[in-house]
Design a protein around this nucleic acid. Structure first.
Ligand SMILES: [Mn+2]
Ligand SMILES: [Mn+2]
Ligand SMILES: [Zn+2]
Ligand SMILES: [Zn+2]
Lengths: 138, 138
DNA sequence: TCCTAATTAGGAATTATTACTATTTAAGAT
DNA sequence: ATCTTAAATAGTAATAATTCCTAATTAGGA
């Protein structure tokens, strides 16, 4: 997806198109399958735009997540990671040794008996598998 | 399970049976299906034993989790909750409005094609569904 | 009873995130 | 093209959860 696709989504929601917001989206579009913390997003942007505030990064990551443009991930350490909703819905294998992650195209919701979520309005879900990756096993 | 069951597990692992450790386990055995933060465990114990250190709670929750006696849960806010491995393995529905949780007896691993975890040694996993519970929907 | 490695209490430090506020700005109205 | 203003930002302070540090205590084996 080109950046304009996301900018149009922002316009449709009636939020302002600021240079800061565009930079944040660009960071995520720079490479595929990127899982970035707020700190890391900030670090990447300040290389070119040193005045970008960390608070602005947090505020926008949160907003982009609420709009469905980003997904927030929790890999067990206590900092959120974000990825852009650019490719197919997926989940992750996370190595507890090196911290690296691989994506798996399996979603529990496809196998969940709807009886389990009777009277519950599902908004989102998380599923991650933790263990030792091939590299760390030698 | 009586408390002795867990104390024997600690002995088998060669760790000391301190009063503090026993109090922590007792807190979790006081009621079923309890999901407690470190702070909450500490609060409950200091009613009777005011000298219990918060650091000791953290240190032991972490240790008990490594020994497989407790499970650590992350419900999206950034504080860990713990529950004792007393009943059947399960996952949770978490209400994003009231913060409450219900347990569901469905585990994604039972449906996961092992092809997805080839060359990956699984240690643990997380699966939670977030949404609005029956109460909060009116 | 003695010894010692393990554990603890209490407080300081760290880390991630959120709150605050004066200033700036995007974008619609004139 | 300028004006207007609600939304957004920068910079910094505050908060919350967790971890680290160190001197003192203690469980359990000798
Ligand atoms: Mn991913
Ligand atoms: Mn539970
Ligand atoms: Zn899914
Ligand atoms: Zn499971």
């Amino acid at each position: 997806m080109p950046i304009n696709y996301f900018i149009e989504q922002l316009q449709a929601k009636g939020v302002k198109i600021t240079p800061q917001r565009q930079e944040i989206i660009k960071v995520f579009l720079e490479s595929q399958d990127l899982h970035l913390s707020a700190e890391e997003v900030h670090r990447r942007i300040t290389v070119k735009f040193p005045s970008m505030s960390l608070d602005t990064v947090y505020r926008n990551l949160s907003m982009l997540q609420k709009l469905g443009i980003l997904t927030e991930l929790n890999f067990g350490d206590r900092k959120s990671l974000f990825e852009i909703n650019n490719s197919q819905h997926h989940h992750h294998l996370i190595c507890t040794k090196c911290g690296g992650s691989q994506e798996i195209e399996f979603c529990p919701l496809d196998f969940l008996d709807k009886q389990h979520i009777k009277n519950f309005k599902v908004q989102k879900h998380s599923f991650e598998i933790f263990g030792i990756c091939a590299n760390c096993m030698q």
